[in-house]
């Protein structure tokens, strides 16, 4: 039981976040109005995605260093959950953009960067599918995974900052931290990041176990 405390924590935090998101008091902002509640869901999903993809890259590096097959399974499942979070982040962002910016997919560098990142990780999945030999698949896709993550970082953090963006903190717009975030928002926002990341780890853990059992049954 004591090994599962973080799952209980994830459930507690997410219950708190959902309740606060639906019912809690939020600051009034022009244009944003009530849609500011989405900051509890949309933004933590991105933080979660970046953490999951980073973990995936770390497991790929571990695989290349010691060649343990299990590390590769963990890496691919973290990438899968990362893609899931990315798609959910896009969906929540689309809803938000539709109400505040007037269209579901404004031509904004951050959105496009994330779409490119999703393409990159989908290419990773296709690459995995194109090998029959498991050793080769694991090794070569690990190489691509690390390479993709190395390009993903400038894509997400540098390119959007060079161009104008509708997002806060880019292209002269103030960051959340400066004006919009007050302490009440932070009380929910920071736990939400932890909660969603834990949820991602949990999903990944279940998928990894499923794969391990399947591999054991096949043998």
């Amino acid at each position: 039981m004591n090994k599962n405390w973080w799952k209980a924590l994830a459930v507690l935090i997410l219950t708190y976040v959902i309740l606060q998101g639906m019912l809690g008091v939020v600051p009034r902002q022009p244009i944003l109005n009530e849609s500011i509640r989405n900051v509890y869901f949309h933004v933590p999903l991105w933080f979660g995605m970046i953490t999951l993809l980073l973990t995936s890259a770390i497991y790929s590096i571990r695989y290349l260093r010691n060649g343990r097959f299990d590390d590769d399974v963990v890496a691919v499942e973290f990438a899968n959950t990362g893609i899931l979070f990315g798609i959910l982040g896009c969906a929540t962002g689309s809803i938000w953009a539709n109400f505040t910016w007037g269209e579901p997919w404004p031509n904004d560098p951050k959105l496009n960067s994330v779409a490119i990142a999703m393409l990159m990780y989908m290419a990773y999945m296709i690459l995995r599918g194109s090998f029959d030999d498991e050793q080769r698949r694991a090794r070569i896709s690990a190489v691509y995974n690390i390479f993709a993550f190395a390009v993903f970082i400038p894509l997400i953090f540098i390119v959007p900052r060079l161009t104008d963006s509708l997002h806060p903190g880019n292209g002269g717009n103030p960051a959340f931290g400066k004006y919009d975030m007050d302490n009440r928002l932070r009380m929910v926002f920071y736990p939400a990041i932890i909660g969603f990341t834990l949820l991602g780890v949990w999903i990944t853990q279940l998928r990894v176990r499923y794969r391990r059992i399947k591999a054991a049954l096949d043998e």
């Binding site: 490119i116 690459l127 390119v159």
Partner: peptide
């Protein structure tokens, strides 16, 4: 490097394109 990766796979031509477009985009945009 992408071409090295693709050459190991079954279908190099398609994979090369699929893998290199997203990788090259940040560079291309800049």
């Amino acid at each position: 490097l992408v071409s090295g990766i693709a050459s190991k796979a079954e279908n190099p031509a398609t994979l090369m394109a699929v893998m290199s477009f997203p990788i090259i985009l940040p560079l291309l945009l800049t």
